[in-house]
């Protein structure tokens, strides 16, 4: 029933692993700009209602206006700014409900991936995930942990072998795509514990429990994000 993985995908994954390079997105200029703007908002240098000065940002970072515009589109999708044609981009403040919904939805997708992996992964694939988890636990610094975590989740998705699950994740872009564990220090223990539970359930082929472990972990990450940003006064509650 499950189709063989596409050989091209396996080949490129193999290449990246042999070269020892993390399979991460290369950071484009637009990614850098987006990261910079997110940081300004988190540091309180840009506040809710402020207009983004695109020329200034471009000049400060030494890039053209094109990556700045790309970054604004991404930030709009992530919920950090609201872009209005002819008026520009304004800092919106993150809504508590949006943050919670976002992590719930990602939990639903990753949970389904985990369930599929528990049902159909080979023993070798499960051993590989287990080894990756062990490496995460040993990571000395946040940067290493972060990239190992990203690789673990990427591997989980590849094993689940479902283009439609990957598609659903693309629609929910991360609120904090880079340096999540720097921004949210409480995130690492949550992730370590959650992935540990996940790996145990996967090894025992307990699909529903693996699903629940993923959902619970991402829900907790959402609460950690709310707590982090709540302290900085960055959050807004939807008027009800």
């Amino acid at each position: 029933m499950r189709m063989a993985k596409t050989s091209a995908e396996d080949r490129s994954a193999g290449r990246a692993e042999r070269s020892g390079r993390p399979r991460l997105r290369r950071e484009s200029s637009a990614d850098q700009v987006a990261g910079h703007v997110r940081q300004l908002i988190m540091d309180g240098e840009l506040r809710k209602g402020d207009r983004l000065r695109q020329d200034e940002i471009a000049e400060e970072l030494g890039v053209s206006r094109i990556p700045v515009r790309e970054a604004i589109i991404a930030l709009d999708r992530e919920g950090w700014v609201s872009f209005e044609a002819n008026r520009g981009a304004f800092v919106t403040g993150l809504e508590v409900d949006d943050i919670r919904d976002h992590y719930e939805l990602r939990g639903l997708v990753f949970g389904l991936a985990a369930k599929r992996v528990a049902e159909s992964a080979t023993d070798e694939e499960l051993a590989d995930l287990s080894a990756r988890y062990a490496a995460m636990r040993k990571a000395d610094d946040v940067g290493t942990f972060s990239s190992l975590n990203e690789r673990f989740l990427g591997r989980l998705l590849r094993i689940s072998d479902s283009p439609r699950l990957r598609a659903a994740l693309l629609v929910t872009p991360s609120i904090i795509p880079e340096r999540f564990f720097d921004v949210v220090p409480a995130g690492r223990p949550i992730q370590e514990k959650g992935i540990g539970q996940l790996v145990r359930h996967l090894k025992a082929r307990r699909g529903d429990e693996a699903d629940q472990a993923m959902r619970a972990t991402l829900r907790k990450q959402g609460e950690a994000v709310v707590a982090t940003f709540g302290e900085s006064g960055l959050l807004v509650n939807r008027p009800s």
Binding site: M1, R2, M3, T6, E104, L105, L108, V109, G111, L112, R116, D161, S162, P163, R164, L165, A168
Partner: peptide, 23 residues
């Protein structure tokens, strides 16, 4: 290149519908 629309793909899609509308 076309991805397979096999049983697994159908099951995954409807499972996502079930979860999202459940949410």
């Amino acid at each position: 290149f076309v991805y397979p629309l096999d049983e697994q793909a159908v099951a995954d899609r409807f499972a996502l519908y079930g979860r999202f509308y459940g949410f």
